[in-house]
């Protein structure tokens, strides 16, 4: 593995401190992948969403430098890049925690008491919805509907859908991620 600080010149300011999703990988690679995506779309401005998706997958979130970089590459003004990045719920301009818990608040989950799950997780780990714990371990988010209505109430823990959740089960599922149980 090469030294992580062996950045190419133009990317130095663009590489945020290695996010959890790419821990242990040289930062350079991520920009190579991003460049490949931009190239695959032939630098077309209409590929903005696709490229932002890739950028967020690579870096975990979209910081100002990344947005600028993408805008330049696609020849899209910064105002439009920022406008798109803030319009869609999927894009995050802030770093996310090492682990994620997404509580579904769709209608089926609402009918089956999803708000109690959300409240329990918030209370147990002192984390606001769409926020991250100060130690950066846990990000809590809500979803409009993840389409797992047959298993309501549902939540997603680090990408794995878990159905028929209870407040206690959700709190227990997160406990191993946290440095000290509360």
């Amino acid at each position: 593995m090469t030294a992580p600080d062996a950045h190419r010149e133009p990317t130095t300011t663009l590489a945020p401190t290695a996010g959890p999703t790419t821990a242990g990988r040289p930062a350079d690679n991520r920009f190579k992948i991003l460049d490949a995506t931009i190239k695959r779309h032939r630098r077309q401005p209409d590929a903005l969403l696709e490229v932002l998706h890739t950028a967020q997958e690579l870096f975990g979130y979209l910081d100002r430098e990344t947005l600028t970089y993408v805008g330049r590459a696609l020849r899209v003004p910064p105002s439009r890049v920022y406008g798109v990045a803030t319009f869609y719920n999927f894009f995050s301009l802030k770093p996310k925690g090492a682990h994620s818990c997404v509580v579904c608040l769709g209608t089926a989950c609402y009918v089956k008491g999803a708000d109690r799950i959300l409240a329990a997780v918030q209370q147990a780990y002192h984390v606001p919805p769409h926020g991250t714990t100060p130690d950066g371990q846990l990000s809590l988010a809500t979803a409009r509907c993840i389409g797992a209505c047959g298993l309501a109430p549902a939540a997603v823990f680090d990408g794995d859908i878990a159905g028929r959740m209870t407040p206690a089960a959700a709190v227990a599922r997160i406990a191993p991620w946290m440095p000290h149980d509360q």
Partner: peptide, 11 residues
């Protein structure tokens, strides 16, 4: 873009 919460037919 099956957005209605509670719908998962298209998925």
């Amino acid at each position: 873009d099956e957005g209605d919460p509670g719908a998962f037919m298209d998925r």
